[in-house]
Design a protein around this nucleic acid. Structure first.
Lengths: 230, 230
DNA sequence: GCAGTATCTTAGCCTTGCCTAACAATATAA
DNA sequence: TTATATTGTTAGGCAAGGCTAAGATACTGC
């Protein structure tokens, strides 16, 4: 691999690792095991890569103590996240991909596209603030505004909320929610938040009620729907 | 690399080689050196890959004698060419890439996209027959319609054409053309097509002009040579 | 504070691709 | 037809990334 430019100087593996670290811990430190599970590789491989990331200046690492992203690593991660989310948006809006299928394709593409491609795509899409899952898209300069939403599991009965994002990679979960119209942008009334088992019951705009188990309630992120600031 | 599906079971290197072989020789055989130059790798690397391609059933190979694509290899090459040309079309038509910048980006992307992506892209683009360079886009089933060649007598002044075949049995004619380098593969500029007597004047790559009578002009079959390849 | 479990690291090996250097075969030209 | 060039192949390495197995460290519960 030749490393075409400053543009794409890291291998796709390196990118996978920094992105995984960011998704797991942001600027905090990520453990070997967490990263290994997220990427479906062995712990030994992660240890090896942590060392390499440190040499490259993308991460700090101390044996038996996990690794954290440096500023350079963080920038690299956000660059990939931006690509990923813009690509997902494109796949859904222009190629008719479904909500669930988008992730895998974007995962491969994000390692192949250049910064130029990314920015032209952003133009084409009209510089969206969020991807189809409701996740914020980092800016081209590597900044990411803070998320003001909270998981549905922390909502109060009686609130009106709007789904902002769905934070889960599993196709099953996305499917289930997609079929019921529980997608970003939808406004809901919280009917009940049951502390005994964590089930949250919401009512959608059509008057239909959906009881959601704790797992789902924690995957759905909402914000107050008092005023609509999309 | 896990090899997600039957979809993308070969590595991107393997793809590069079969595509290079196809571009160099179609179904014919390609030499180690040609491929090495085309891909900017050492001859030793090509020898190694030729062996591997054979094991994979994508190519036939005999030491010191070059390699040729099997049907499977040809199909793989055409699949990549289809991807490449569709992606180039997309880059120019939707992302505003310029003619020159399109190739490099497509070269990387063609290894990252799935068949599903490719076909959805074809839909989006309206199933174009040719890419922006004028190259024919192979069909999804791996077939490539033959470039329709026509006699030089039917060319237009100003066209750049490539000789495809010379359709005449007479040794005199073949000799005459051969001596002047007017053989299959040669690229020409059509300077004048004179309707009064059917004389066609062409200029070869060395700037030399050749006036050809109607008889010769009808024996030489050409195709459009819109640009580089072959 | 120590045993037992959970997590991490090291060691050693594999595959893919690439490289250079040295040797072998083929082609060309005198 | 033999000498020389050109082309191809083998041998031996390297780096990235991955794996398993075995040993080291850290954490937890008593």
């Amino acid at each position: 691999m030749t490393g075409t430019a400053a543009d794409r100087s890291h291998s796709s593996s390196v990118g996978d690792y920094v992105k995984a670290m960011w998704e797991l811990a942001g600027k905090g430190s990520a453990s070997t095991k967490e990263v290994a599970e997220k990427l479906s590789v062995s712990s030994a491989s992660v240890t090896g890569m942590f060392g390499r990331l440190q040499e490259m200046g993308l991460a700090g690492y101390e044996r038996y103590r996990g690794a954290y992203l440096t500023d350079a690593g963080l920038a690299e991660a956000l660059r990939l996240v931006r690509r990923h989310r813009l690509i997902e948006t494109f796949l859904m809006e222009h190629l008719g991909y479904s909500w669930q299928d988008v992730h895998e394709e974007a995962e491969r593409l994000e390692h192949a596209v250049s910064d130029e491609f990314t920015e032209r795509l952003a133009d084409l899409l009209g510089h969206p603030a969020r991807d189809p899952h409701g996740d914020l898209i980092p800016a081209a300069d590597g900044t990411l505004i803070l998320e003001s939403s909270k998981p549905l599991s922390e909502a109060q009965a009686g609130q009106r909320v709007r789904i902002v994002k769905v934070d889960d990679d599993s196709a099953t979960v996305l499917n289930h929610l997609g079929e019921r119209g529980l997608v970003p942008g939808r406004t809901l009334s919280v009917k009940e938040v049951r502390s005994v088992d964590g089930v949250v019951t919401v009512e959608d705009g059509d008057g239909k009620e959906h009881p959601l188990g704790e797992k789902l309630a924690r995957a759905i992120f909402v914000e107050n729907a008092t005023h609509e600031n999309q």
